[in-house]
């Protein structure tokens, strides 16, 4: 048995240890955020965070994740209470079909955790592993810029609170 820590809760699974995380998230935990796109680590649709860093869940065996903190799209917020990056994507209407967007949001979130004020080039490079086919790129970039404003406000608010 492997115990996973997903979005702050633990989940026990009897699934074979080499099984990629994606299938456990989608089919056992019934989380929809991470998508199957290629199974080859080429498109980023399956991206989730492990200890705050983006990983391809389609190529990460669950055995590698025991005891580590996994965050999925659902861990960032909900439809009633979206997280700052999710909110920014809504505000910018940054989706067409939307299939790639969860991966984009996870990658953007990971970037903002490292650097709350990234410039355009940094954002483009951080999102490079994720493919979008609808051509929503410009809106996604705007959404990440907008989210970074939210992150900066949060950071400064947190700073003030701690003083």
């Amino acid at each position: 048995m492997i115990t996973l820590n997903v979005n702050g809760s633990t989940f026990d699974t009897e699934t074979a240890p080499e099984t990629p995380l994606l299938y456990v998230l989608r089919n056992e935990m019934e989380l929809n955020g991470a998508k199957f796109g290629c199974g080859l680590g080429q498109c980023g649709a399956c991206t989730v965070l492990a200890d705050g860093r983006p990983i391809f869940s389609c190529l990460t065996p669950i055995a590698m994740l025991a005891g580590r903190e996994i965050t999925t799209l659902e861990g960032l917020g909900s439809i009633d209470s979206p997280g700052p990056v999710q909110k920014a994507f809504m505000d910018e209407q940054a989706a067409q079909c939307g299939y790639c967007i969860p991966g984009m949001i996870m990658r953007a979130h990971a970037l903002l955790l490292q650097n709350s004020a990234p410039d355009e080039t940094t954002i483009r490079e951080a999102l490079e592993p994720s493919l979008c086919r609808c051509g929503t790129h410009m809106r996604i970039l705007r959404a990440v810029h907008r989210a970074s404003e939210g992150f900066q406000q949060q950071t400064s608010a947190a700073g003030e609170a701690s003083q």
């Binding site: 929809n32 659902e74 439809i79 979206p82 809504m90």
Partner: peptide
């Protein structure tokens, strides 16, 4: 009016939005 898309909130928060997300009772792969 630029009315916000009705499907975007669900899509960006992981609500079931696609046929890929359909999970019927007893479903096999």
């Amino acid at each position: 009016q630029p009315v916000p898309r009705v499907d975007i909130p669900g899509k960006v928060t992981g609500e079931p939005s696609y046929v890929h997300d359909l999970r019927l009772k007893g479903m096999v792969h």
